[in-house]
Design a protein around this nucleic acid. Structure first.
Lengths: 337, 337
DNA sequence: ATGAAAGCGCTAACAG
DNA sequence: CTGTTAGCGCTTTCAT
């Protein structure tokens, strides 16, 4: 493996000139730059990451604590991973994965400087990891919005406003009996912040508007979605449905079709989910779309700023907006508002 | 951040003693070891990963090139990621993610020594990445089985034998008209090695046994699975089905139920898929299970051996076996074989 | 059983 | 615009 001094010798310049040519931190004459680049190509030189990390105190990687629990939708996790990788790439960093459930290992990569910062997914209310993360030797960003974050910056989609918006807009479209199908029971029991906040937004908005509200939990891996849907239709007779459960979306869609429910005439439906998961066959669900890429970018941006020395980047709650598609009534231009 | 010399001073020993106490590479007296450990705890010392990487020429991470293409089932990818992380953990390594589609970045992490080895998922026949990977400065392991690997060790489940086994066993159970629903069309078009090999195993086995064979491609995100199933049932009238498409499994299951097909009496079905994806509601599909953990472990084991200096670890094709469950006829104890 | 010291390959003052 | 040099925090020979 060629080293930087090999390049220096080969190009007839000093070591530091090579270093500066590479980092661009000082002006280099055209001619020497060319000789250096030629040498780099000729010897196929690549800077040694370890050496660079030691000298610069930068690992060039950000850690991502991913949830490996079964109740977290793998597709959604992958979307976040992809988004974080893209964002990290732009900050010329790599992504080091750590198991969210393995708190020891998570703290270790931070303490050993294997990563410059850590992004933590799937945060729960009163997350037991927070105290240690709050005093970690390197920046941490929560991809979630627990009430108490002990000063750790939080970045998330505003799930509370998201469900509230869904309710409000359904109400404006004439809905009065609402049902929300929320996250899997394991997620609710853990009190994942997105689940708690989504539930709260739904309940509060319904109460404020004085509409009937039913919040259900559904484990589509375990119970029959068809059965659930039939029960809902028969017992509650809702005129609108809010779905915040990516894993169950497809199954619910099939169950509704199976029951001959036509949307939006029989039932209006709004999904709280990433765009990709709301296109089911021929139907495109009206949705409050979870902007995965934006969230990922915001998280990496926060991490990057902290790495570069910012003292505090504040919290960030990304505002929701409703994307009207096939499963809600169009709003007559001047009907309300 | 405390460094090793801080520990040495605090414990009243030399720097190298601390290093050896940590690595266990030479005997340390009980008393000094205790003083060192006490100092480590007191100063909450953690070795600096960069410094260690520089001195030892080991990054302590293995790279994983993950496919981010939409046609690769996210759930299955996550299962592999989890499996690799577990295996890496045992080898006290971390997992650095790189986008499989970003060949540049992949080669860079190898060349810069950010990882000690690379595991590449979703390899295709005549994969354009192979030549560069074959001459990479650090070990590479393919999680896939292309015909030409240019000397790069291949590790994979034997998908060819897997479908062949499914066919053979269905035939032993009286099936004569077989249909296989394979990977999504994008996967087939790319010639992912698992898709190609699975198809070949199916075709060859059917031919050898002289049974009717139909191989179909299904994009359940695009076409209606119900329609597909209806067409199959009406036009081909098969007595057995082999499914090698995790993303479509649930949809096919629902479609079959919807058509009132009862398994195994009307139709025998074998899935080629990880165990977790073959339990659908109340039905447990007979399957040739893809042993994700085993594959991941084998890949990391191969990588680890190569890192430690092994010249060649050979290829590894993990043998399939059929797990009989609800969707095939039981074989009378002495009927065949 | 323990120390001293020479690097590993960079970055970034400091010096011109 | 370029060079010299002192580390960064470890691992690992040599010595003893």
């Amino acid at each position: 493996m060629a080293t930087m001094s090999d390049i220096a010798r080969e190009a007839g310049v000093s070591l530091s000139t090579v270093s500066y040519a590479l980092s661009g931190k000082r002006a280099i004459s055209e001619s020497t730059r060319e000789r250096i680049n030629a040498a780099i190509t000729r010897l196929s030189y690549h800077p040694h990451a370890g050496a660079r990390a030691l000298a610069s105190q930068r690992a060039g990687a950000i850690g991502l604590a991913v949830p490996l629990a079964e109740d977290v939708d793998a597709h959604v996790v992958m979307m976040f991973v992809r988004s974080l990788m893209r964002a990290a790439h732009q900050a010329s960093s790599e992504v080091l994965l750590v198991t969210g459930e393995d708190h020891e290992a998570t703290l270790r990569v931070l303490a050993e400087g294997k990563v410059d910062a850590l992004v933590v997914m799937d945060v729960v209310e009163d997350d037991p990891r927070i105290p240690a993360l709050a005093t970690a030797p390197r920046p941490v960003v929560l991809l979630g919005y627990p009430t108490q974050a002990q000063g750790i910056p939080r970045v998330d989609f505003d799930f509370e406003q998201a469900t509230a918006l869904a309710v409000t807009e359904l109400h404006r479209r004439g809905a009065h009996r609402l049902v929300m199908i929320g996250s899997p029971s394991a997620t609710q029991t853990r009190h994942a912040t997105y689940a708690d906040r989504a539930t709260r937004g739904f309940r509060t908005a319904c109460q404020n508007l004085g509409v009937s509200a039913h919040h259900l939990v559904h484990d589509h891996e375990v119970e029959s979605t068809g059965q659930l849907v039939r029960t809902i239709l028969a017992d509650i007779r809702p005129d609108a449905l809010v779905i915040h459960n990516e894993s169950a979306l497809a199954a619910i869609h099939r169950a509704l079709s199976g029951e001959g429910v036509s949307m939006p005439s029989d039932l209006q439906v709004v999904a709280i989910a990433p765009r990709e998961t709301t296109l089911l066959g021929t139907v495109e669900y009206t949705a409050v779309e979870i902007p995965v890429d934006e969230i990922g970018q915001a998280a990496v941006a926060a991490a990057t700023e902290l790495i570069e020395g910012a003292d505090d980047v504040g919290d960030q709650l990304i505002a929701p907006s409703l994307i009207e598609r096939d499963t809600t009534h169009p709003l007559t231009p001047g009907s309300t508002r």
